[in-house]
């Protein structure tokens, strides 16, 4: 049985797809067979971030409608063994995803994979609800910014009430906070919510803090999950997050600004 992880946030643009790409790649790098599914029907983007946009032939909705087999639709990653991508459909039909269809595809994937990562669309509509519905674990991607934190809290409410686990009265979905676009320098100046502030408000376990980093845009420009950029701070932070998810105890890095000479001379 595969473990199903939803990468969600409520708010758009906080780094869900970047995170889904990085976490799924990281899990596969650790030797776990992993598939990452794009639930953003109509606004497919995971394929671009994973760098496989030109290899898309069939998509998630084709598989649900039995127009293609899973085998035909899955794109095997060329860089990392045991990693596959199931792209979203570009259809404008909002009802293309059905609960039964999604369940059937997840069940089938469950036989071959250790982890199924569901990249949720923004918002709290059908695609987002379905991405979360079957989840065992949730990675709640949050920026240290008021609207993102509030939306994350709304999503936590949905995870507690509108998932299969909640409806069946099973053990609740395990929620992890992933704080992205974090600027330690701005936190130190009091301009940005700190990791402790956000933890205090959302009250869930911290999976990792991803620093604001040029490498994230460079990675998406190139279509290479940022976790593969092992020299970058963001790549290392994602690597830590994956290791923590798998039970390793790694100290949090990138929480303090590295100061240059000038900063050390004139800072307080």
């Amino acid at each position: 049985m595969a473990r199903i992880i939803v990468v969600t946030s409520g708010k758009g643009g906080v780094g869900k797809t970047t995170t889904a790409a990085a976490i799924s790649t990281g899990l596969a790098l650790k030797g776990h067979k992993t598939v990452v599914i794009d639930f953003d029907v109509g606004l497919r983007n995971l394929d671009l971030i994973m760098g496989c946009e030109r290899r898309v032939v069939y998509d998630f909705v084709n598989v649900i409608n039995r127009e293609a087999t899973l085998n035909q639709a899955l794109i095997r990653d060329k860089r990392v063994d045991g990693l596959a991508i199931l792209p979203a459909s570009q259809t404008r039909d909002k009802d293309a995803l059905t609960k039964e269809g999604v369940e059937r595809v997840l069940e089938e994937l469950s036989k071959d994979y250790d982890y199924i990562v569901c990249d949720s669309p923004a918002g709290i509509e059908r695609g987002a609800l379905l991405a979360a519905y079957f989840a065992d674990d949730a990675i709640v991607v949050t920026n240290p910014e008021v609207s993102s934190v509030r939306d994350s809290d709304r999503i936590l409410g949905i995870l507690a009430a509108k998932t299969r686990r909640a409806e069946l009265g099973q053990e609740r979905v395990k929620e992890y906070l992933l704080l992205t676009r974090y600027s330690a320098a701005r936190v130190q100046k009091g301009e940005m919510l700190s990791v402790d502030d956000v933890r205090e408000i959302l009250a869930i376990d911290l999976l990792g803090v991803i620093p604001e980093s040029k490498s994230v845009l460079q990675a998406s420009n190139a279509g290479i999950p940022v976790i593969l950029d092992k020299d970058s701070d963001a790549g290392q932070a994602y690597d830590d997050a994956v290791a923590r998810y798998l039970g390793e105890n790694r100290p949090h890095r990138f929480l303090v600004e590295k100061r240059g000479l000038l900063g050390r001379l004139f800072g307080t």
Partner: peptide, 20 residues
């Protein structure tokens, strides 16, 4: 500046408590 993050935190605590 220090105040702006503190203000954000306070506003969030209130709105989140209400919506919860």
């Amino acid at each position: 500046r220090r105040r702006s993050a503190a203000v954000a935190k306070e506003r969030l605590q209130i709105i989140v408590a209400r919506e919860r």
